[in-house]
Amino acid sequence: MIEFTVAATVLLGLALAALETAHWHRTRQLLGVALLEAARAGSTAGLAPGSMADAFETGLLPLYATASPTGARARLRQAHVRRAQAAGLPAWRIDILSPRRAHFLDFNGGNRSGGFHAAPVDALSPDYLPERHAAHRQRWPGGRGPRSGDTVFDAAVLHLRLRYLHAPLTPGLGALARALGRERRDAEGQAMARAGLLPIVLELQLTMQSLSTWPADWSQAQGEIVMAP
């Protein structure tokens, strides 16, 4: 009887570990697809935060699939609200690491080189990059802007970083996350650990396809979309 109990416990543990691993990888895969959809929306809609957020959550709907699309979206929102309340943090956050404010200052439309594009003064254009880089090289070493230290090619790349609060299926893994979280020094990490949530972090880069304008009221964040300073 003791041998059976030990064997059953080991087998149950292995089964739960396999289940959690499959759930983790499926979530990461769908998050990668959703992040790509957000990047596509941002690259074609001039970094519009509303379009990016909607595209991200739409891409994530298969993770909460039901018989109807409206039911899937309701499940997604409910799950995100629960996690946000438990951790005191947004259930997900996308940081726009590039383009940055320094890119706008170095390569905006008011800083034209040779009249290659007619972008507004406070906007970045993805057009005529080789010609503009050649012109910038005559002004700056290597064509690198004095504020950003990057080239106009770098400024035309949308670089996103996603942080998503993942909820384990089994209570045991949540308890383990809380125990390990006591060693975390950062406030966000401790908050996630107390809630029994695990962070999934992904990054993605995509070339900008449209004119992007620095929003006047976007000094820090628009909901879950955060622009780097």
Rank of each mutant, 00 (worst) to 15 (best):
M1H: 10
I2W: 05
E3Q: 09
E3T: 12
T5E: 05
A7I: 14
V10M: 15
V10Y: 10
L11F: 15
L12V: 13
A15M: 15
A17P: 06
A17N: 11
A17I: 14
L19Q: 03
E20W: 00
A22S: 14
W24L: 12
H25S: 09
T27V: 07
Q29S: 13
G32L: 06
V33P: 01
A34K: 03
L35I: 10
E37W: 03
A38Q: 09
R40N: 01
A41S: 15
G42E: 00
S43W: 06
A45W: 07
L47R: 07
L47A: 08
G50D: 13
M52N: 06
M52Q: 08
A53D: 13
E57P: 09
G59C: 05
L61P: 07
Y64G: 03
Y64N: 08
A65G: 00
T66C: 02
P69N: 01
T70L: 13
R73A: 10
Q78T: 11
Q78L: 11
A79I: 01
V81E: 15
A84R: 11
Q85H: 13
Q85Y: 08
P90I: 05
P90Q: 06
A91G: 12
R93G: 04
R93A: 11
R93I: 12
I94P: 05
I96P: 04
S98I: 02
P99F: 05
P99G: 13
A102Q: 08
H103P: 04
F104Q: 02
F104I: 07
D106T: 09
G109N: 07
S113A: 15
H117C: 12
V121G: 06
D122L: 02
D127H: 11
Y128K: 13
E131T: 01
E131Y: 01
A134I: 10
A135Q: 13
H136L: 14
Q138W: 07
Q138D: 13
R139H: 11
W140S: 01
G142H: 12
G145I: 00
R147E: 01
D150K: 11
F153L: 07
F153Q: 12
F153N: 07
H159P: 03
R161Y: 11
L162D: 04
R163T: 14
R163Y: 09
A167T: 04
A167M: 10
L169R: 10
G172D: 13
L173G: 00
G174Y: 01
L176A: 15
A177T: 14
E183M: 08
E183H: 10
R185D: 13
R185A: 11
E188R: 15
E188M: 08
A191E: 10
M192D: 03
A193I: 12
R194P: 04
G196R: 12
P199W: 06
V201C: 11
V201S: 07
E203Y: 02
L204C: 11
Q205L: 00
S210D: 14
S210K: 09
S212T: 13
S212Q: 06
T213N: 12
W214C: 04
W214F: 09
P215N: 10
A216W: 08
A216S: 09
A216N: 02
D217M: 00
W218K: 01
Q220A: 12
A221C: 06
A221S: 11
Q222F: 15
P229Y: 02
P229N: 00
